[in-house]
Each structure stands twice: as structure tokens, then as C-alpha cells.
Design a protein around this nucleic acid. Structure first.
Length: 423
RNA sequence: GUGGGUGUAGCUCAGUUGGCAGAGCACUAGGUUGUGGUCCUGGUUGUCGCGGGUUCGACCCCCGUCACUCACCCCA
């Protein structure tokens, strides 16, 4: 038996970075007024089809969709934004507070061909803001990502931003783009010709080199922005510059979900092979209304948790060692003989209850092998309880770093050990 | 969905024109009866991914299949 394709186990020896990222991210989000939300893993298929877009790759061929026992079509969530919008509308949150900020983490599911940095079950850290139209919230989110990555010690990342415009400016842009593409149709790859009919915006993101050549001088969304979108994007750019946040404007950045409007961005890395996006986000001002809520401006981002951890592992192997050493024990009890085992069991329970991280190995091995085990578990102290010690009513406490040994009387064992070890 | 690469011990990998299945690490037991890391000595661990074929004989050659992996695509 083994995991199904594209799914994987994250084993205890790799978990410390995940926990570290969660801890840093959540603390940062909380300080900016975000609150955690937890949403279901399963939703009605319709929710994703309507929000992400019927013609996107995600909806067309990547979702895990199946009928439940009564025939209702359900889908394992491929992303979080749609569900959070659904929740926002369902609980009429707009009615109790004009501004809501959420964050969450959890698994997402997309049935793609697995490769480096891409899994069928992958994890995202998400942040979403509802109710603010001002560009300053766009900047705040980009800053937030930047700050988080800085706190995690990441380097070599670059922010790419673009503006996709709004329903107001789309028609003029689409016309310009179609005119442009019509003239060079024969130079485009088959895929792009297919895209012309379905989603011409996506062609700008094509990586085929002949298409890239053909696209030189193509109209860009940012050259066709309506005055309101233009102002919005100008404030985003100038404020980021003032704040000293490093970024570049990427006219060809087109996100693969149809709900995006205005500001869109990606944080990219060079260290993950073809999977360069570690985080991506954007504004989706039309989505809440589209899903049946009131007209509500909204914006959010998703961090590729798996990719982020992989980048960190690559950048900092030493960090990994430090993290794993944090898992050490305060005390390992070496119990020799049945009588000692029973006593050791009770002592370890009492000590753990009192906050001293303690373990006993109940296998009844020799002193030597138990000492080896204490060493492997990186215990800072070892308490030796053999026949001699029990008879004398005092146990040997060995400091594994200094090799100093002291005797600890049994009758006052727990408080005594607490004061020695917690120094 | 389409290509390329790789499948041998728990891990990392050797394996000679086709002739007994290997190393290091890990694990385990010892090294004067009860003291860890380094050191020394011994020991355990295999459906050579799976199924066919060729051959006296296949880890090795051929066909098929599955898995992993990288890339296309798409995205986080």
C-alpha cells in the first residue's frame, strides 16, 4: 500500500519548518487585524465553477469532482477564496461589519501531473480582505507577504505586479488585443489559438518562445486602464516605491482564475525549477456580487505552503538542524528492572504534568543501550533508576552536556528535579 | 493529457561481454557483571518495482505494465 499519486505524507522530521511558518504567518496576520477562519474541504461544484470560471484549466480538467450518495455534485476545494466568499455571504458578515479580514491554512486539491513543487494535495496559507476598495489594502497585502518572507529569512524572491483592469476598461483592451492577435494568428501555437476564443488574456502568459516573439509589442492591460483603475494602480506603485518594497511591473502577468480585477501579483523564486510562484494574489471586486452577495470590493492572496517550505529547506540546511534540535527532551529516565519501570512510569507522568519534558523507554533494555537512546533523543538530563538507587532511596541525575552526576532523593523527586532541570 | 530520466537492504547508491546479491550509513549485540556521542569487533535486513519473453542460466537483453521524478501545460 502506498499514497495515491500526487499525495504525500509529511513526516515528523520535516514538520518543524511547517510549524514555524504557520506561527510566524499567523502572528503577523493577527497583528494586522486578520482573524482565522476554517472552511470545509468539500463544497458544491457549482461554487468553484462560477467563481474560478467555467473555461479555466482548474475547472475544466483539474478538479476532484464526484457525486455523493444522493447524486449531488461535490468538489474537493482547489483553492480557498471561493469558499471564504461563500462563507462571507452565507453568514451575512457584510451586515455586521463593513470590513472583514480573514486568514487560514489547509489542503487544496488539483488533479495535475505532479512535479517539483506541485502536488495533487497541496497546502496554502490564505489571507482575504472584504470591504476595502482603497489601493492601500493592496499594498498592505503585498507588504505583508514581503515582511513574512523577510522574517522567515528568505532571499532571492521577487515581486511581480500588474493591473488587470475592471469591467469598465476590459472591452477596449480586449478589442485591442484581438486586433493585434488577429494579425499574427499564424505565428501562435495551437494552444494560444484555442485560447483566443475562450480567454485571450491568457495568451499573454504563454511560455512558448515563438509566441513570446509574436507577442512583442502586444497591448497590455495597463495601457488600457480606465481613469479609476489607472489612479488605483498608480497609488499602488508609488506607495510601494516610497516604502522601499522591491517589485517590478510585469505586463504579462495574468492570473489563471477569472475572478481577478485590478491589482494582481506573484512572488516568484528561481529555486524551484519550473514552479516559480511561491505566492500569488489579487483583487476580485466582482466576486462577492457574482456569488449572490452585495457589491463588495475584495482582495486576497495565497501562499504555496509546500513550495515555501521547499525553498526554505534549500536555502538553509543549518536551520533544519537547529529546528530539529529544538525537539530535545528535558529528561530521559533509565529504569532497570520491573520495580523501577513502574516507578518511572509514575514519575514521568508527574514530571510532564509539571512541565518537564520526560520520556521513559519501557522495553527493558540494558543500561548501555538506554544511554544510547537518551543520546539519540537529545535528552539534556538522564535519571538513572536501578536496583542500587532504589535501595538507597536516591537516584542518579546525569547532565548529558557536562557529564556531572548528582544524587536526587526519591521522596522529594519531582520538585527537586524541576528546580535542577528548569535552571 | 504529452515527452525525457530513474526503479537493487530502512536510507544513499555500486553491481564487470549474462554466471552464488554488494558497500557505506542506519539498526542490533559485545569490547572485565551498571554509564551516551568518537573508536574497535561481530550480527540482522532483499519479491533486484511487477508481469511476460529470450537463454543451460537474467539485476543485466527484449516486450508490456506500474510507480517515482523532471519538463511541457497550468498554477500556489
Amino acid at each position: 500500500m502506498q499514497t495515491i499519486r500526487g499525495f504525500r505524507d509529511i513526516l515528523p522530521e520535516h514538520i518543524s519548518l511547517w510549524q514555524k511558518v504557520e506561527k510566524e504567518a499567523f502572528a503577523l496576520f493577527e497583528s494586522f487585524g486578520f482573524r482565522e477562519i476554517r472552511i470545509p474541504i468539500l463544497e458544491k461544484t457549482q461554487l468553484f465553477a462560477r467563481s474560478i470560471g467555467e473555461t479555466t484549466d482548474i475547472v475544466e480538467k483539474e478538479m476532484y469532482t464526484f457525486p455523493d450518495r444522493k447524486g449531488e455534485k461535490l468538489t474537493l476545494r482547489p483553492e480557498a477564496t471561493a469558499s471564504i466568499c461563500r462563507s462571507y455571504i452565507q453568514h451575512k458578515m457584510y451586515a455586521t461589519d463593513p470590513v472583514r479580514k480573514f486568514y487560514m491554512t489547509g489542503p487544496m486539491f488539483r488533479r495535475e501531473r505532479p512535479q517539483k513543487g506541485r502536488y495533487r494535495q497541496f497546502y496554502q496559507i490564505d489571507a482575504e480582505v472584504f470591504g476595502i476598495e482603497s489601493p492601500y489594502i493592496d499594498i498592505e497585502l503585498i507588504f505583508l507577504l514581503n515582511e513574512l518572507f523577510k522574517r522567515l529569512g528568505l532571499t532571492g524572491l521577487s515581486a511581480h505586479i500588474n493591473s488587470l483592469g475592471c469591467p469598465e476598461c476590459r472591452p477596449s483592451f480586449q478589442k485591442a488585443l484581438m486586433d493585434f492577435l488577429g494579425e499574427r494568428k499564424e505565428k501562435l501555437c495551437d494552444n494560444c489559438i484555442r485560447r483566443m476564443a475562450k480567454n485571450p488574456l491568457r495568451i499573454l502568459d504563454c511560455k512558448v518562445s515563438t509566441c513570446q516573439d509574436a507577442l512583442k509589442g502586444a497591448p497590455a492591460t495597463i495601457d488600457h486602464l480606465c481613469p479609476a483603475c489607472d489612479d488605483h494602480f498608480t497609488i499602488v506603485r508609488t506607495t510601494l516605491e516610497k516604502q522601499g518594497v522591491d517589485f517590478s511591473v510585469d505586463k504579462s502577468l495574468v492570473r489563471g482564475l477569472d475572478y481577478y480585477t485590478r491589482t494582481a501579483w506573484e512572488i516568484q523564486t528561481t529555486s524551484l525549477g519550473a514552479q516559480s510562484a511561491v505566492a500569488g494574489g489579487g483583487r476580485y471586486d466582482g466576486l462577492v456580487k457574482e456569488l449572490g452577495g452585495p457589491e463588495t470590493p475584495a482582495i486576497g492572496f495565497a501562499i504555496g505552503f509546500d513550495r515555501l517550505v521547499e525553498v526554505m529547506e534549500q536555502l538553509d540546511r543549518e536551520q533544519l538542524d537547529i529546528e530539529s534540535k529544538k525537539l530535545s527532551l528535558d529528561l530521559f529516565i533509565v529504569a532497570l528492572g520491573d520495580a523501577a519501570l513502574e516507578k518511572a512510569y509514575f514519575w514521568s507522568c508527574d514530571l510532564n504534568r509539571a512541565g518537564v519534558r520526560t520520556m521513559v523507554d519501557f522495553r527493558g533494555k540494558s543500561l548501555k543501550s538506554l544511554m544510547k537512546r537518551a543520546d539519540k533523543l537529545k535528552a539534556s538530563h538522564v535519571l538513572i533508576a536501578g536496583e542500587n538507587e532504589l535501595n538507597d532511596n536516591k537516584l542518579i541525575l546525569r547532565n548529558m552536556n557536562t557529564k556531572n552526576q548528582t544524587f536526587v532523593p526519591i521522596e522529594n523527586l519531582v520538585p527537586e528535579l524541576m528546580t535542577i532541570i528548569q535552571k
